[in-house]
Design a protein around this nucleic acid. Structure first.
Lengths: 148, 148
DNA sequence: ATAATAAGGTTGTTTAAACAACTACAAAGA
DNA sequence: TCTTTGTAGTTGTTTAAACAACCTTATTAT
């Protein structure tokens, strides 16, 4: 069983250490700007800012969160008055999630902080290398998910 | 404010989607082999297999887990009879974590499943590109952590 | 038309991440 | 010596990940 790369280094990549660091940095930058959101909550809002009024299932698909996760994220976003659940009148199974005025109003501020944090993260890294990272991560994701 | 790469794609990388997929795949492969461990528990055991009897603080440093996290991981590993806490006689603050015979015995089996899962993950990906991913992730991690 | 199947959401449970607050002990300084 | 400071570990809380079980409503098949 020949090993052409270091398994340990690989595991370090996939273990989520850098992902956690990004999460911490983003949360810290949110707090500095008095934004009381988590990364996951922001991700949900990010979908809604482009596609207001979509279903929870759509949110689940577009954020790679499972259905129970979306239920709880929406619960918390509702408590903060950022979104509202509107039952669909045609299909009573569906709940359409709409941004409140408050939810709409924070878009620019939040995106600024997100972009700023991403810039910090990739400081001094060539875009060609980022492109390779992006493609490789997509391929790893496909390798792991499509075989099921 | 010029954007030379897609912020959205970047966020997808750093959001942890691929990391979660790897976690799921590893857990699934563990279950198929009747190994009742999580990725985090395995990571702790991985340190102990090389450095049995180290302190919880060492485990925290080497696994990028915070101290409360290690406390609970060790709690669970102790319940499964995989490790034991031994208070240090010289420095009464320290607790040295030792593998039990059971904890030692599963090393080969667990590492086989981990390696197998890593191979699935990076199937058909050139090692040069993995190297770039590794280096880039290290740099992102440094960018985010060293500025604090 | 009715039964079976599928889809959308919710609830419950375990494990982990992050952070604050705390206890116990050790080391350093006055 | 005694006080201060630092280190190691624990407990508590909120949020999220994963997964199973469940309820309700739609759709499909017979």
């Amino acid at each position: 069983m020949k090993t052409i790369y270091s398994i340990e280094n690989l595991h370090t990549i996939l273990s989520g250490r850098t992902h956690s660091a990004f999460n911490r940095a983003l949360l810290s930058n949110f707090r500095k700007n008095n934004i009381l959101l988590t990364r996951e909550q922001w991700t949900v809002l990010g979908v809604l800012w482009k596609n207001d009024g979509c279903t929870q299932q759509t949110l689940a698909n577009q954020t790679s969160t499972d259905k129970p996760g979306i239920t709880r994220l929406i619960d918390n976003l509702e408590k903060e008055n950022l979104v509202e659940r509107h039952p669909d009148t045609n299909d009573k199974r569906l709940k359409l999630i709409y941004l409140t005025p408050k939810g709409k109003s924070i878009e620019e501020e939040v995106l600024n902080v997100v972009n700023q944090t991403l810039k910090e993260a990739v400081k001094d890294i060539e875009s060609e290398r980022l492109q390779i990272v992006k493609e490789t991560f997509q391929q790893i994701y496909d390798n792991l998910e499509t075989k099921k």
